[in-house]
Design a protein around this nucleic acid. Sequence first.
DNA 1: TATTAAATAATAACTGTTCCTTTTAAAAAA
DNA 2: TTTTTTAAAAGGAACAGTTATTATTTAATA
Lengths: 138, 138
Amino acid sequence: MEKVETGRTRKKRNTRQKAVVYQVVLDSNDHPTAEKVYERARRELPNISLGTVYRVLKELSQEGKIKEIIVNKQSHFEGRTDFHHHFICRACGKIEDVETPLCRYTCKKVEQKGYVVEDIEYKFYGLCSKCAQKLGKE
Amino acid sequence: MEKVETGRTRKKRNTRQKAVVYQVVLDSNDHPTAEKVYERARRELPNISLGTVYRVLKELSQEGKIKEIIVNKQSHFEGRTDFHHHFICRACGKIEDVETPLCRYTCKKVEQKGYVVEDIEYKFYGLCSKCAQKLGKE
DNA sequence: TATTAAATAATAACTGTTCCTTTTAAAAAA
DNA sequence: TTTTTTAAAAGGAACAGTTATTATTTAATA
């Protein structure tokens, strides 16, 4: 039997899994990977599956509620969604936020070529202060 | 029977495979992936293996003769090794070089925190001029 | 030319992620 | 409240890019 499509309110479920994953990212300030988020979410929801974590993380990113940053070909996530960038320590792997003004000069130059800039990503690689000290005063 | 280690010249073979892979990267201006380099290298050396291409590309990168850039968690390679950055079109996937002055302001700020900056990477995402036109004058 | 070990070809293994199928459960309807 | 509906979840298989393994080849040296 066909169902008449009313075109009205589409369902959009509000699941515990999504809420928990979101909260985990908001509560983390170490840019966790999906695996780490999974680990932490399981403390609250022991039966959550890794696939769900991946799907929800992607969803939240697309909704703009969290941000994905990719380091070493691996996704990391953070609750901060304002314009900022990252420093990655090659020794300990730590990812730290870096406040950088948008380089208007460069953007303008790119846009003059007819390009549309939608997102900008700066990454700084090197040694964090701790590792720099530890690895000797070169 | 033990061999006395003279500590003298270590062997370092100069293979056709390495020469060809290097030349392919130098001749390409489209930031090819390892697979693409493999494809092109095979025109010259039909029996070269993908594993060799990966190993040689890594070697050349470490020697500073080529540069690796990662887009969408996939490695791409280029012969240019001077300081420059990239624009990535989300529609056609094309990667284009972008000339950007080093942002001394930001670097200084990072270094004031005791960090050692060894490498900097800027990526601009959006639409290239062709795709921007094609996708309509929004 | 014979020797030797660095580099290769071929292929298996690995890793982070996505996809697929069945089941569950949130929300709408009865 | 109970039933129905179907979006989302669990579990696991599949996938893609890359790395590791091993027997073989070959460039460089003796």
